Amino acid sequence: MEALVMDVAEAFSCIGWTVKLYPVFHYDPSIVFPNIEIIRRPLRNRVLRYFRERWFWKWCALLAVFRHTSLNTPILYGHVHLLTFDSHIKYFRKGPRWVWTFGIDVWGERAKIWCSYLNRLDHIVSISKYTADRMVEEGVVVPISVIPCCTDINTFVPTTIPKYIRRNEILICGRMSLQESYKGHEVLFNALPIAEKILGKQLAIRVVGTGDNVERLQSVVKTMGISDRVIFTGRIQQQELIEAFQHCGVFCMPSRVDRNSTGFWTGEGFGIVYVEAAACGRPVIASCEGGAIETVVPGETGLLVDPRSPQDVAEALAKILGSLDLADKMGMAGRVLVEKQFSREVFVENIKRLVLDA
Rank of each mutant, 00 (worst) to 15 (best):
G108D: 08
G108Q: 09
V157C: 06
P158L: 13
I147H: 10
R167Q: 05
H123F: 00
L178A: 09
C150N: 08
R166D: 09
V125W: 06
G139N: 07
K163L: 01
R175A: 04
V136I: 12
E109I: 11
I124D: 00
R166I: 00
T159Y: 09
A132H: 07
N168L: 08
V136H: 15
T131L: 06
N168E: 14
T159H: 06
V157S: 02
R134K: 09
T151V: 15
F156R: 14
R166V: 04
P162V: 06
S128M: 07
D122G: 01
I170R: 00
C115A: 12
A132M: 10
R110D: 02
S116I: 04
Y164S: 15
R134F: 10
P158Q: 13
S126K: 05
S145C: 08
N119V: 12
V146Y: 06
T160M: 14
R120E: 10
M135V: 00
W107Y: 02
T159E: 03
D152E: 09
I170V: 05
V142K: 08
R120N: 12
I165K: 04
G174W: 10
T160V: 10
T160I: 15
A111P: 05
V146P: 12
V136D: 11
P143V: 04
E109H: 14
C150P: 11
E169L: 04
V136K: 15
S177L: 07
I161A: 03
N154V: 09
D152C: 03
R175K: 14
T155H: 11
A132Y: 02
T151R: 03
C149F: 08
I161C: 11
L171A: 03
E109V: 11
A132W: 08
S116K: 04
T160S: 15
L121V: 00
N119A: 06
I172N: 15
R110C: 04
L121C: 07
I161Y: 08
A132T: 09
T155S: 11
W107Q: 12
Y117C: 01
C150H: 10
I165R: 02
T159I: 05
Y164R: 15
I153C: 14
A132I: 14
L178S: 14
